[in-house]
């Protein structure tokens, strides 16, 4: 055996102490969800829920979109926590796809219905850039909690992991946003809200190697 490697092994074994195992991904996803929901609820209360919230909670389309976004967040969080455990299949990254498709499908169906009712008028899009920072703010606590929890794992696929983590936080941010921001036109929601979620996730994934690296492991 190479002497330096032998020396390293001796040192690692000498410094070794009992460690606390990371809980399984499903448990970590649940812990994250509890903290994240508290953060989102606090922002919704601070911003005051929309006046027509009681009516919206009986609107099937609104409920489908909110539940699909919530399911996307939970699935993405679970996938991200799986990916930081070495040996897990990367196919788990596809788990958020079904709820994402339902969410997108509902928005697409809404756009189609609007076009049937209002014709070309339904494609009129007004600027609503505020959605991007609003989703980032509502999703801030979920995002920070996610980063802290991900840094306890191994950065096996950092970009994919951070993108999924950001998708979880932004999707939950969007769930919160719709509870106080009265924007329901499907095209507007699709472009400004879903678009913001997608953009934030992609941007975060792009910087994944800066967020998750081997130097963070064991320090977080």
């Amino acid at each position: 055996m190479n002497l330096e490697t032998d020396d390293l092994i001796e040192r690692l074994a000498t410094r070794h102490k009992p460690i606390r195992r990371l809980p399984p991904p499903r448990k970590r996803a649940l812990y994250w969800l509890l903290i994240a929901l508290c953060g989102v609820a606090a922002v919704v209360v601070l911003m005051s829920p929309r006046d027509d919230l009681a009516a919206k909670l009986t609107d099937t389309r609104f409920l489908i979109e909110e539940l699909a976004a919530l399911a996307t967040a939970v699935a993405a969080a679970f996938s991200a926590f799986c990916l930081i455990v070495p040996g897990h299949s990367r196919a788990v990254a596809l788990l958020p796809a079904p709820p994402l498709v339902i969410w997108l499908g509902s928005l697409g169906h809404g756009c189609w219905q609007a076009w049937l009712s209002f014709g070309d008028e339904a494609w009129r899009l007004s600027p609503e850039w505020v959605c991007l920072p609003a989703i980032a703010v509502v999703g801030a606590i979920p995002a920070l909690t996610m980063v802290a929890m991900l840094q306890k794992g191994a950065p096996i696929a950092p970009r994919m992991t951070v993108m999924l983590g950001a998708l979880a936080a932004a999707a939950l941010g969007n769930v919160g946003l719709r509870l106080f921001h009265p924007q329901d036109a499907s095209l507007m929601v699709l472009v400004w809200q879903f678009g913001s979620v997608a953009l934030l996730s992609l941007l975060a994934g792009w910087g994944g190697r800066q967020v998750l690296a081997w130097r963070h492991v064991g320090n977080a």
């Binding site: 690692l12 070794h16 606390r20 306890k152 191994a154 492991v217 064991g218």
Partner: peptide, 10 residues
């Protein structure tokens, strides 16, 4: 080996 050591809690 060092990465294994750092990630052994996972």
């Amino acid at each position: 080996l060092m990465s294994l050591h750092a990630a052994r809690a996972t």
